[in-house]
């Protein structure tokens, strides 16, 4: 589709730089400070943390300690370390990992990204199936509402680190159906995905039920029902469509839940993922990996948020229109203000 044309007060007509450019501009404006804040914050946190990246089993003679500090540049002033870190980052490097001195920090993280994404996306699928399925069922079959509500609440109230061992104990050890832990085949993904997905699914079911119940009361849905549309059709054709944009909003908290939970799930199931890497690195003062991991998480959040924004505009033509109108109105307002300010200045000046 063609980018919406914007007419401003001067009567000239010009096209925005990009389709939805105000939106992307806003995202970008958020992204850069976010990255800066994260790097600085984690850097300060790591340097202020007590202890250093040294051997774990015994103390070292002073000479050995100094050699190691020198090797990692930890004997330099902190501001210099900070600037060097930025320098490295701009050329896409984090330096060597302190905990795994024979690997680069970036390499360590990239290796862990794959398994984390696989588990995370499978868990997302689990959560969507449980959440959307449960929520819809509760709206359509009022008899099932209490069951769904209670199941969702239980899913929410059982910590991930309890659910995981329970599933392992009863499904993997008791029934012998699935591997208890480790990584390497699709069957290894099932239990971690369930562990991570069930609590998020519980939260989603509650959300979806509420949202759907609200849209089903909208006039157009009532009208459709009056026309004799079946309940499932009603939900499918009207209510779900109305609620979908709201679901997009919910992706943020779902993602946060998945990412946080992954730390625990990867530990319990011994998955070579980034969450486990993060905790281990924090405990071992592996600064480059810690900062890198935080950055990657922030980056993922950012990408998802942007995608959500774009989908909003795609999904909802009204929103798109509103958005353009809003941008226009906002511009007009600013111009008006500026003009008023100028006028005030001039009047004061004279």
């Amino acid at each position: 589709m063609a980018p919406p044309a914007v007419t401003d007060n001067t009567g000239e007509e010009r096209a925005p730089l990009l389709p939805f450019s105000p939106l992307l501009r806003r995202r970008l404006l958020t992204a850069l400070p976010t990255l800066f804040v994260i790097v600085t914050l984690t850097f300060i946190l790591t340097r202020a943390a007590p202890g250093g990246p040294f051997g774990k089993e015994r103390e070292m003679p002073e000479a050995v300690r100094e050699n190691i500090e020198h090797r990692y540049g930890l004997d330099r002033p902190v501001y210099e370390q900070y600037l060097r870190f930025w320098g490295n980052l701009l050329i896409g490097s984090l330096g060597p990992s302190f905990q795994q001195p024979e690997r680069s920090a970036f390499g360590v993280l990239i290796e862990g990204l794959g398994p984390s994404l696989i588990v995370g996306l499978s868990a997302l699928l689990v959560a969507l199936i449980l959440g959307i399925g449960g929520g819809t069922l509760a709206v359509l079959r009022p008899a099932s509402t209490p069951v769904v509500s209670i199941a969702a609440l239980v899913a929410l109230a059982v910590p991930v680190f309890v659910l995981g061992p329970m599933l392992v104990r009863f499904v993997a050890i008791g029934l012998g159906l699935l591997p208890a832990a480790l990584w390497g085949s699709p069957s290894h993904v099932v239990l971690p995905a369930l562990t991570l997905g069930i609590p998020v699914g519980g939260a989603l079911a509650r959300f979806w039920r509420a949202v759907l119940a609200e849209s089903i009361e909208l006039p157009e849905c009532i009208a459709a029902r009056a026309r004799g549309l079946g309940e499932w059709q009603l939900v499918w054709r009207h209510a779900a469509r109305k609620s979908l944009p709201l679901l997009l909003n919910y992706i943020g908290p779902m993602l946060a839940g998945l990412v946080t939970g992954s730390v625990v799930v990867e530990k319990i199931f011994s998955i070579p993922g980034m969450g486990r890497c993060f905790i281990d690195s924090a405990l071992a003062r592996d600064y480059p990996v810690v900062i890198g991991a935080t950055l990657i998480y922030a980056f993922i959040l950012l990408v998802v948020h942007t995608l959500v924004d774009l989908s909003h505009l795609r999904l909802d033509p009204r929103l798109r229109k509103e958005h353009t109108e809003w941008t226009e109105a906002d511009r007009a307002l600013r111009r008006k203000r500026r003009a008023a300010a100028r006028a005030a200045k001039q009047s004061r000046g004279t």
């Binding site: 061992p165 392992v168 104990r169 993997a172 050890i173 012998g176 591997p179 208890a180 832990a181 480790l182 530990k267 319990i268 199931f269 011994s270 486990r276 281990d280």
Partner: peptide, 18 residues
């Protein structure tokens, strides 16, 4: 060598024969 940091997981895997 499987680097398993959770001790309960280690026992679980041993029980499972892995």
């Amino acid at each position: 060598f499987y680097p398993i940091t959770d001790k309960n997981t280690t026992v679980n895997l041993y029980r499972a024969g892995e």
